[in-house]
């Protein structure tokens, strides 16, 4: 090994060691967002919000060429007219869908008014990678958002707030491998912990279920209220499959969350929980 190669190797080893140490030091803790990081997010939020809006519009525009594919025999003028009308319809449908979603959230908010104070928020950005599952919402400390607040949709639990800046906040979804939710199987009252799998899968799983517990596909999982972060009784998801844990002492079950984690657009933040707040029947239970 030449002297130059040895020096390069030494430099690489030092760099990797320093990076590994930095990785350990920067393991996120709840409520840990530096003032610089907070400003960075606030500055980037409008750009992210704009790009997200643009991409959603583009998604609807992309469907247009497909619908036009079979119209080859029509005249150019007619095609343009159809295109214009299609665009208009797509846009109107988008407004309609948004209206329906917001009406649904508003109804849910009114139903839940005796149990929670809810704040409507829009998703403006997502985690850039596929390992983790976090989203950024357009509500921050100036709207009264605090760490560890529960986030949900009318279908079910979404996650909890982990960092808050002035104008936006970051939510750890229940499908993130770092997430853990004290839960129970609604029918049998069997307790367990719902943990995330990997961000891109959109799935969670409930672990440490005793072997003798009656667990079956289709059963509903709700929050247990233990651990004090999530209120009791929020629907989490439906069991998709059951398997044995590798140690053999417990079972685990894959869960398909009621709230579609990959299609989140608007969500509700629970800003206040009134005493004895419990949802008795899960929404989206079809």
């Amino acid at each position: 090994m030449g002297w130059v190669t040895a020096k390069r190797l030494f430099f690489l080893v030092v760099l990797v060691a320093v990076t590994l140490a930095a990785m350990r030091v920067t393991i996120p803790e709840p409520a840990r967002l530096t003032p610089l990081g907070s400003k960075f997010r606030d500055v980037l939020a409008p750009a992210q919000s704009g790009l997200t809006w643009l991409s959603r519009q583009a998604r609807h525009a992309v469907t247009l060429p497909v619908s036009m594919y079979g119209a080859a025999g029509r005249s150019q003028a007619l095609e343009q007219e159809v295109e214009r009308l299609q665009n208009e319809i797509t846009q109107l449908n988008e407004y309609k869908a948004e209206n329906q979603r917001l009406t649904g959230l508003l109804n849910y908010k009114q139903v839940m008014v005796s149990k929670y104070d809810l704040l409507v928020a829009s998703v403006i950005a997502r985690d850039p990678g596929n390992w983790f599952a976090t989203v950024t919402l357009n509500r921050g400390s100036r709207d009264g958002v605090r760490d560890n607040m529960t986030v949900l949709t009318q279908q079910g639990l979404v996650g909890r707030v982990i960092t808050v800046s002035n104008t936006n906040c970051e939510v750890l979804l229940i499908t993130d491998p770092r997430s853990g939710v004290g839960s129970l199987i609604q029918e049998t009252r069997t307790p367990g912990i719902v943990e995330g799998t990997v961000g891109s899968s959109g799935m969670a799983r409930i672990i440490h279920i005793p072997n003798d517990a009656q667990v079956a596909e289709g059963q509903v999982v709700v929050t247990s209220g233990l651990g004090s972060i999530f209120p009791k009784g929020i629907p989490v998801g439906r069991i998709a499959s059951v398997s044995a844990e590798s140690a053999g002492l417990f079972k685990r079950a894959d869960i398909l969350p009621f709230a579609g984690m990959n299609q989140l657009e608007e969500v509700l933040i629970v800003t206040k929980v009134f005493p004895e707040a419990t949802i008795t029947s899960p929404a989206g239970g079809g």
Binding site: L44, Q48, L51, T52, L54, S55, R126, P128
Partner: peptide, 9 residues
């Protein structure tokens, strides 16, 4: 920026 916004689509 694309990764956190547009690629969701």
């Amino acid at each position: 920026l694309l990764q956190t916004s547009v690629l969701e689509v």
